[in-house]
Design a protein around this nucleic acid. Sequence first.
DNA 1: GTCTATAATTCGATAGAC
DNA 2: GTCTATCGAATTATAGAC
Lengths: 186, 186
Amino acid sequence: MTSTSKRRRSGDTKAAIRAAARERFAADGYDRATIRAIAADAGIDPAMVMRYFGNKESLFAAAAEFDLRLPDLSQVPHDELGARIAAHMITRWDGDETLLALLRAAVTHPAAADRIREIFAAQLGPAVQAIAPDDPVTRSGLVASQVLGLALTRYVLRLPPVAAMDKDAVVAWLGPTLQRYLTGPR
Amino acid sequence: MTSTSKRRRSGDTKAAIRAAARERFAADGYDRATIRAIAADAGIDPAMVMRYFGNKESLFAAAAEFDLRLPDLSQVPHDELGARIAAHMITRWDGDETLLALLRAAVTHPAAADRIREIFAAQLGPAVQAIAPDDPVTRSGLVASQVLGLALTRYVLRLPPVAAMDKDAVVAWLGPTLQRYLTGPR
DNA sequence: GTCTATAATTCGATAGAC
DNA sequence: GTCTATCGAATTATAGAC
C-alpha cells in the first residue's frame, strides 16, 4: 500500500513543501521565511526541503511562479477596460497569495524584483499593447503603479481605509483611474 | 582642541550613525541592514552604535522619523490639489530617503508598518479632511495607495517605464488621479 | 569615548545512518 | 525517502579593558 502509507509519495511531499513555502514567503518575506519554519509547516524535516529543492533560492523560484491570468482585453468593451482590470486584479490577489509572496520578497530580494518586472513586462505589457498602441509601455507602468499600490496598502501595510474597502468600492474608485491610464490622452 | 580632535563629540557621532542607518535601512530593509555595516559606513565601531542607541529597534526608530511636510491644502486652488500633491510627493521622495527606508522596512518589520500608518493617518488624513469633508478617510487612503504605489514601482521595484518617467510626466499622469480621489464623486 | 573579545542565537547547508 | 547530528558562518548584544 505505497499510496496510503505514512511515507508520502515524492510528488505529494514536494507539493506540500511548495505550498508551505508560498505561505511563509508571503507572510514573512524572503529573509524571515526560514527553511526550518517551512519544513515545520509542511510537517517534514528541514533536510527534505534541501533534498527536493537544493537551496533556498531554488525553493523560492519554484514557489513564486505566477500567472496574472489576464482576460483577453481585446474582447472587453473599450470603456469597461479599467473596471474589468481592477475587478480581475483584486480577485487575483485575494485568490492566490503567490503575488503577495513575490511583493514581500521583492523589497529585499533582487531575484524576486526581477520576477515581478518579468511578470508585468511579459503579461501586462502585451495585453496593453493590443488595446492602447499609443505609448503602451508607459500606460502599463502606470497601471502597475496603481495596482501594486493597492496591494501594498491593502495587504502589506494594511492601511485601515484601504483594507476596509470592499471589492465593489475598489472597482468603483480604481476603475476610472486605470481606464484613463489605458485610454486617456497623453 | 576638543572640537577638532580625532575623537568626535557625542552629537556628531550620533548624527553620523543616524545618517548611515537611514541609508542602509533604505537600501537593504530592516533585516539586511546590519549594525556592523551601518557602523562601517559611519567609520566607527559597531559597539558605539549599541552604546548610543541601545538596540537595533531603537536605532531604526531614531532613523525613521519623518514629516511629509504637506503644504496647507486650504491655500491651494481647489482644482489644482491633485497636481500639487503629486508634485510635492515626488519631490519629497527624491529629497529624503527616510520614506524609502520606512517603506522597505515596513514589508517585513511590523513596527515600520505601524510608523507608516501613523504618518499617513496623522499627516495626510487631517489635510484631506480640511478640503474633502465627504468621506476623507477613504479619500486619503486612495491617495496613499497611488502615492505609495508610485514609490514602490519607481524606487523599490524599479519597473522600467515608471522609473524612466520624469517628474513632469508623473505629475501630468497622477495629478488627475489624485484630484478625483480628493474631489470626485463617491 | 572607543574598541576588543566573546557570549548566545540562528540560519543554510552537508554527511550519513536507517 | 526520511531523519539525526552537526558544521560553519553571520548576527545581535554584552562585558570590560584602555
